[in-house]
Amino acid sequence: MTSETMYILAGVLLAALAMHRLCTARDALARILALNVLSVGIAMLMLLAGRVAGVTDAVPQAFVLTGIVVLVAVTAALLSLAERISGGDDD
Protein backbone atom coordinates (compact mmCIF):
# COMPACT_ATOMS: atom_id res chain seq x y z
CA MET A 1 0.00 0.00 0.00
CA THR A 2 1.51 3.31 -1.02
CA SER A 3 1.27 6.46 1.07
CA GLU A 4 -1.15 7.93 -1.46
CA THR A 5 -3.54 5.00 -1.11
CA MET A 6 -3.56 5.39 2.64
CA TYR A 7 -4.42 9.05 2.40
CA ILE A 8 -7.12 8.33 -0.20
CA LEU A 9 -8.60 5.83 2.22
CA ALA A 10 -8.49 8.43 4.99
CA GLY A 11 -10.24 10.97 2.76
CA VAL A 12 -12.93 8.50 1.69
CA LEU A 13 -13.57 7.48 5.30
CA LEU A 14 -13.78 11.09 6.42
CA ALA A 15 -16.36 11.84 3.74
CA ALA A 16 -18.43 8.72 4.41
CA LEU A 17 -18.40 9.06 8.21
CA ALA A 18 -19.39 12.70 7.91
CA MET A 19 -22.24 11.83 5.55
CA HIS A 20 -23.49 9.23 8.00
CA ARG A 21 -23.34 11.69 10.86
CA LEU A 22 -25.07 14.34 8.77
CA CYS A 23 -27.96 11.99 8.09
CA THR A 24 -28.39 10.88 11.70
CA ALA A 25 -27.50 13.86 13.90
CA ARG A 26 -30.11 16.34 15.10
CA ASP A 27 -27.92 18.67 17.07
CA ALA A 28 -27.00 21.84 15.16
CA LEU A 29 -23.38 21.83 16.29
CA ALA A 30 -22.96 18.17 15.38
CA ARG A 31 -24.32 18.82 11.91
CA ILE A 32 -22.03 21.79 11.40
CA LEU A 33 -19.06 19.69 12.54
CA ALA A 34 -20.08 16.93 10.14
CA LEU A 35 -20.22 19.38 7.23
CA ASN A 36 -16.73 20.62 8.09
CA VAL A 37 -15.32 17.09 8.28
CA LEU A 38 -16.98 16.27 4.95
CA SER A 39 -15.29 19.23 3.37
CA VAL A 40 -11.88 18.17 4.68
CA GLY A 41 -12.45 14.71 3.23
CA ILE A 42 -13.32 16.16 -0.16
CA ALA A 43 -10.25 18.42 -0.03
CA MET A 44 -8.07 15.40 0.69
CA LEU A 45 -9.49 13.53 -2.30
CA MET A 46 -9.10 16.55 -4.56
CA LEU A 47 -5.43 16.96 -3.68
CA LEU A 48 -4.73 13.26 -4.16
CA ALA A 49 -6.51 13.12 -7.48
CA GLY A 50 -4.03 15.70 -8.70
CA ARG A 51 -0.98 13.83 -7.50
CA VAL A 52 1.06 12.32 -10.30
CA ALA A 53 4.58 10.99 -9.90
CA GLY A 54 5.05 12.50 -6.48
CA VAL A 55 4.01 16.04 -7.45
CA THR A 56 0.70 17.65 -6.48
CA ASP A 57 -1.01 19.72 -9.17
CA ALA A 58 -1.23 23.41 -8.27
CA VAL A 59 -4.77 23.99 -9.58
CA PRO A 60 -6.58 21.63 -7.17
CA GLN A 61 -4.43 23.14 -4.43
CA ALA A 62 -5.96 26.48 -5.31
CA PHE A 63 -9.43 24.87 -5.33
CA VAL A 64 -8.88 23.47 -1.86
CA LEU A 65 -7.63 26.80 -0.56
CA THR A 66 -10.72 28.50 -1.95
CA GLY A 67 -12.89 25.79 -0.42
CA ILE A 68 -11.35 26.28 3.03
CA VAL A 69 -12.05 30.01 3.00
CA VAL A 70 -15.58 29.56 1.67
CA LEU A 71 -16.30 27.01 4.35
CA VAL A 72 -15.19 29.17 7.26
CA ALA A 73 -17.50 31.90 5.96
CA VAL A 74 -20.49 29.58 5.69
CA THR A 75 -19.71 28.03 9.08
CA ALA A 76 -19.70 31.46 10.70
CA ALA A 77 -23.08 32.22 9.10
CA LEU A 78 -24.53 28.87 10.21
CA LEU A 79 -23.32 29.36 13.77
CA SER A 80 -24.74 32.85 14.03
CA LEU A 81 -28.13 31.61 12.79
CA ALA A 82 -28.00 28.68 15.21
CA GLU A 83 -27.13 30.96 18.12
CA ARG A 84 -30.03 33.26 17.32
CA ILE A 85 -32.47 30.35 17.14
CA SER A 86 -31.10 28.89 20.33
CA GLY A 87 -31.05 31.94 22.53
CA GLY A 88 -31.73 35.22 20.90
CA ASP A 89 -34.78 36.77 22.49
CA ASP A 90 -32.90 40.00 22.76
CA ASP A 91 -35.16 42.02 20.47
Binding site: R26, D27, A28, L29, I32, L33, N36, V40, I68, V69, L71, V72, T75, A76, L79, A82, E83, S86, G87
Partner: peptide, 20 residues
Protein backbone atom coordinates in the same frame (compact mmCIF):
# COMPACT_ATOMS: atom_id res chain seq x y z
CA UNK B 1 -8.30 28.73 8.99
CA UNK B 2 -9.72 25.21 8.84
CA UNK B 3 -8.47 24.14 12.25
CA UNK B 4 -7.65 27.39 14.06
CA UNK B 5 -10.36 29.88 13.19
CA UNK B 6 -13.15 27.39 12.55
CA UNK B 7 -12.24 25.77 15.84
CA UNK B 8 -12.41 29.13 17.62
CA UNK B 9 -15.83 29.79 16.07
CA UNK B 10 -17.10 26.37 17.11
CA UNK B 11 -15.80 26.79 20.64
CA UNK B 12 -17.53 30.16 20.88
CA UNK B 13 -20.82 28.59 19.89
CA UNK B 14 -20.43 25.31 21.77
CA UNK B 15 -21.12 27.13 25.02
CA UNK B 16 -23.99 29.20 23.67
CA UNK B 17 -25.98 26.69 21.65
CA UNK B 18 -28.69 24.85 23.46
CA UNK B 19 -28.16 21.12 23.42
CA UNK B 20 -31.05 19.65 21.49
Amino acid sequence: IGAGLTGALLLRSARRLRVE
